[in-house]
Design a protein around this nucleic acid. Structure first.
Lengths: 206, 206
DNA sequence: AAGTCCATGTAACCAGTTACATGATTGC
DNA sequence: GCAATCATGTAACTGGTTACATGGACTT
């Protein structure tokens, strides 16, 4: 039982879904806290079934589409999930290649660095907007039911809140760095304009 | 060349270090953005050397301690690092088991949930304090040199700033959830005190 | 006596990614 | 004609973790 197993159980605890559906959920958005590809999900579902955590029944579709296996969580699965949720969890160590690059940013050309940080600022702003839109939609549709702890919506709500906080921080950080890089460049430019030829310090020329 | 390779080069670009030293750096703190164990680092250094990114020379220690290999970055290594830094980087997907658990928190006992969130709030507050102390130390020792982009300190500074922002967000999120859980419990308690026997709604008894 | 620090590794395992396979149908 | 959607998988690879090995000296 790896985290992904519980991720799948966490979705199936809300509604029955096919492997394909689960793959859609795990691919992007919705849950801002994990991701997986079909090639991992299908075998994992088989394992969950072997362990009695889920069952499936085949649903024939009378149009062109292929049959699908719709999975449901079992009592054992729900219990395992409930147990896992309140078990102690070690703190995750960060693994973000972009942040790792930041550590060596002093070696980079400031212009290129700016481009990269603007790209990431953009991407995370977009993700932030998506999360905020999703939360707004949930609020509109369900109102204060989001705060009732016994409802699945509570789980969605706090997960999205995490995503929002994370993306805000990320965007803020990118902007901070961008500002510093721009100042650096303006400083250089000002120096060049004052004295076109190479001279390191800020002495006044004759 | 995996991210770890560049993490190691990023450290060696600042000063020569032994495998053991590198393992210490990668184990905890300092760089809040990656981690690795000796069992991965030593073979990785051998690969880096085979590729001409680093060289080593053995340093005999005249006390009891075993000899060590001190690694230095080569011109090729520095170039590879510089190139990698400004290459586009895909946005990292989050993988935090604790956040994944949050998604299914509606299944949990509120008391246990509170305990877990208080633990994490505590752990991340500590990490935050550590980063802040580290930044304060650098500021004290180096002053505004931290903002000079061409100095390694700039890389350290922005990496630590990332860590601070991340931990702040994490602590904030934990507190938010804790507050909601506490309200939930107080609501329950108030209901119990009003009418000790089980009754679902807020009707007045005769 | 037991555990930690210094210092360098090897071997086995496993979660997650990449690549590939199948096949009907709908939309551009 | 070509790509995408629906639907389910297998096979190979790889980055990272866990476990194990060595060995002297210093600390509790």
């Amino acid at each position: 039982m790896i985290p992904l197993s519980y991720g799948l159980l966490g979705l199936l605890a809300r509604q029955p879904l096919s492997g394909y559906d689960l793959a859609q959920y795990m691919k992007k958005r919705v849950a801002p806290m994990w991701s997986a590809l079909p090639s991992q999900i299908y075998p994992e579902l088989a394992k969950l079934e072997a362990q009695g955590m889920v069952t499936h029944h085949v649903v024939e579709q009378h149009d062109y589409r292929p049959d699908k296996k719709v999975y449901e969580i079992t009592k054992a699965g729900r219990e395992a999930l409930r147990h896992w949720v309140t078990e102690p969890t070690p703190v995750t160590t960060l693994r973000d290649e972009f942040v790792l690059k930041a550590y060596s940013l002093w070696l980079a050309d400031p212009h290129e660095a700016l481009t990269r940080f603007r790209e990431h600022e953009q991407a995370h702003s977009q993700q932030l907007a998506d999360y905020e839109a999703l939360l707004a939609r949930l609020r509109r549709e369900w109102g204060s039911a989001l705060d009732q702890m016994n409802s699945p919506l509570f789980g969605s709500s706090i997960a999205i809140h995490y995503g929002i906080g994370y993306e805000r921080h990320y965007v803020h950080w990118c902007r901070q760095v961008i500002e510093q890089l721009e100042q650096q460049l303006h400083g250089e430019q000002a120096a060049r304009e004052e004295e076109p030829s190479s001279r390191p310090s800020s002495e006044q020329s004759s």
